[in-house]
Amino acid sequence: MNATASSASAVPADSAATSVALTTTASNGVPAAPTTAAHPQPWAERLRRIGGPRRSPLAMIVWFVILLALTAVILYPLIWLAFATFKPSSEFGQNFSLIPWEATLDNFRKVLRGIAGVPLSRFFLNSLLVACLAVAGTLISASMAAYAFARIKFRGVGGLFTCMIGTLLLPFHVIIIPQYIMFNKMGLIDTYVPLVIGKFLACEAFFVFLMVQFIRNIPRDLDEAARIDGAGHPRIFLSVILPLLRPALITSAIFAFIWSWNDFLSPLIYLTSPERYTLPIALRLFNDATSTSDYGATVAASFAALIPVLLFFLFFQRFLIQGVATQGLKG
């Protein structure tokens, strides 16, 4: 942010030119603007790639085996976690092997019973509610902001765009204490407002940026045509841009959901009643240092909490990976 101010003067008040550095990926034809990534090149064409036709079967097999081995190494921690859910708590810290000495379902039984009289399903529902609000807020506010940055020319847009990009670099820890004091004064502790208000106010710059990039690749002819028909910005936004923005909206929705689902620090700070806890905080309760540390239940609950993310991943991985590929979003 401190740098933002100094750069603002150097930035032409033209929103399009401002994005440059971060758009290099899209603008040089090097990697993938959304439109190209959405249509992977045909198989035959990809075969022509480096040494494609001349690959020996032996080399192919060797590489394939290497990839398989790599996959095994990378997925091992997840496999370990799956097995660990069957270990009794007392084996943690003692049995580091994959297979439990005495396999048990107690961990899952315990998890299903819930915590502090609150059933596990409640935490799932809370997480779901927060995540859905986060998605809704992100889609509405980020698409509006992105439209303004990408399509409307007005005084100050360049500087504001730079500010928005600047927040991408901002370490979140700088603002957490004042934010808490603020929400506390407003009496919003133990509500979901602090968790989702930022989403309705487009505070997650990644999404704004992602959508700006996408909108820039939508041909202007369409808006021009609408404009000639007498449409104002709200109409162009709603009936031209939003429908075309769908792929970016889907990608954003999935990321907003998963990030909200995994978020740990904000709910820890803002939620105080167990019946309002989201999953990650509920998980933490299983693992308390001053009383019995129940690793078994923690692991089982963590595993359960990962399942929705993994399912999302399985079903929507195409969108996720495209989102990452096009915009450099990170999980």
Binding site: M1, I140, S141, M144, A145, Y147, A148, F149, I152, K153, F154, R155, V157, L160, C163, M164, T167, L170, V174, I175, I177, P178, Q179, I181, M182, I197, G198, F200, L201, A202, C203, V208, G232, H233, P234, F237
Partner: peptide
């Protein structure tokens, strides 16, 4: 230009509130 200005800031209202209220303000305070 005035219409564009109005539209631009109109669309940016949520972001502006967020930027000044939840990012810049807290930064200055910290």
């Amino acid at each position: 230009a005035r219409r564009e200005l109005l539209a631009g800031y109109g669309f940016l209202v949520p972001w502006l509130i967020g930027f000044f209220g939840l990012t810049l303000g807290p930064m200055v305070m910290s």
